[in-house]
Amino acid sequence: MSKIVIENLYKIYNEGKDSEFKALKNINLNIEDGEIVIIKGVSGSGKSTLLSLMAAFSKPSRGRVLVDGENISKLPDIFASKFRNEKVGFIFQSFNLIDGLSVEENVVAPLVLCSSSQSELDSKLKNALKLANIEHKKEQNVVDLSGGEKQRCAIARALVNDPSIILADEPTANLDRENSLKFIEILKTFKKLNKVVVVATHDTIFDNLEFIDRYVSIANGEIE
């Protein structure tokens, strides 16, 4: 069975009201283990909406998303959160770090929910910082980081719980070309770690990369 199965997925905002808007229409998509998928589409096409449903950030209006055979769209909040915490690492366009905390404190945040020992915590933390290549800045407040460093910090946080799925929403939109290329290198690392990676983007830098397994384009909420 596929790692992620998306079946007849609809997302309708403000359903039943005058402002009703169908952001996603009948999406069907299977993603296999270890696959890297790029979702392309113009602004407003529904990329972010799709990712948010895959991460159980929001609930679909119809249809369902199965991860490892489990319908995550119907999970009560406690289980949906647990799913996000354990199986998903999310990388945001605006990095979404918690200002005022250090790199280390930001990266450790997903781990505080389970009662692991200090040494366990430290080793996971160290590992993630190393993978994202941000170890040398670990005590610095995230407000003082450069854009590229911020993203590496966000990546470390996404990796810290060793999730099987990495979702990235416009990861390069706030980066210069050099840092964007670095991100592509990191994608290769993900590939090596055998993670499922889904990147939503309209950045052409992702075009025609040989290690990408699949390109999916989406327009007006439908897969083309």
Partner: peptide, 14 residues
């Protein structure tokens, strides 16, 4: 109604 997928049901869940 646990099986419903409307926003009202989700607000009840919250």
């Amino acid at each position: 109604d646990f099986d419903a997928s409307n926003s009202f049901q989700y607000s009840l869940e919250r």
